[in-house]
Amino acid sequence: MVDRTLEKGAPLLETRGVAKRFGGVAAVDGLDMSVTQGSVHGLIGPNGAGKTTMINLITGLFHPSEGAIRFAGAELSARPPHEIAALGISRTYQNVRLFSGMTALEQVMTGCWLKRGVSLWSSFLGPAARARWRETRAQAMALLERVGMADRADELAETLSYGEQRRIEIARALGSAPRLLLLDEPTAGMNHAEAHAVGRLVHELRDGGLTVLMVEHNMGLVTEFCDSCTVMNFGRLLARGEPRACIADPAVQEAYFGRKNDADRIKSLR
């Protein structure tokens, strides 16, 4: 597994000593992380470890108090979100954030914004732009097809189930044809079959050349679908490397399940 990451070469995303403080509280406290091109990288850790903050820092919704975030040779830490998106980073949200009042297809169309291929002005005037619009629409439909939501394209997204909304959000994030996809708990609220479908989709995307960084709580999915992972706790790095090795790490076990002694005591109580 480790050899395979070496094969694929240089990191696409690299953070150095990234810290984010809100007042006196450090949500992320000097994190080094690196995501290899063409891999699925898991970002795991107990609740409040700073995983979502990390995603927000990478996408520019927050700016780091310290440290550097490099993506494909570009420094991200001072850029606004729309520029970061234009560099090829796309994301989904922990609590699904679809646009109210838009149909599933419109959501994905909006996600295709960066690939619209026409200026705002000509999209208003030109008949040539209408052809491009139809093309983009077809692309958006193909993405909905890919996540298995094509038959719901014209329905208001807010009338769909939570799991369906998550899939639409993934389709929307793919609309910009990103190089790096950030998935923030993509399987939360999904049953086993749905979660595995998402896992398989992530593998398909990776095999198509996409790099994926996913925050995930389901350890089964992490070991099954992630090529490598980073474990955070209290905003700091706890472990990194091959998922099974990380999860077996005593420090990780302790962070998730409490002190080792406590665990032993529970065992002795049984």
């Binding site: 996408t59 919704l61 646009f99 909006t110 914004w113 999209s123 619009w133 910009s176």
Partner: peptide, 22 residues
């Protein structure tokens, strides 16, 4: 138009719209 779509996105959630390049 594309402007109309982007306008709706910005109105509903400017932060999300910005992470999509708008």
């Amino acid at each position: 138009s594309w402007y109309g779509l982007a306008a709706r996105a910005v109105r509903e959630d400017p932060a999300v719209a910005s992470t999509m390049g708008v």
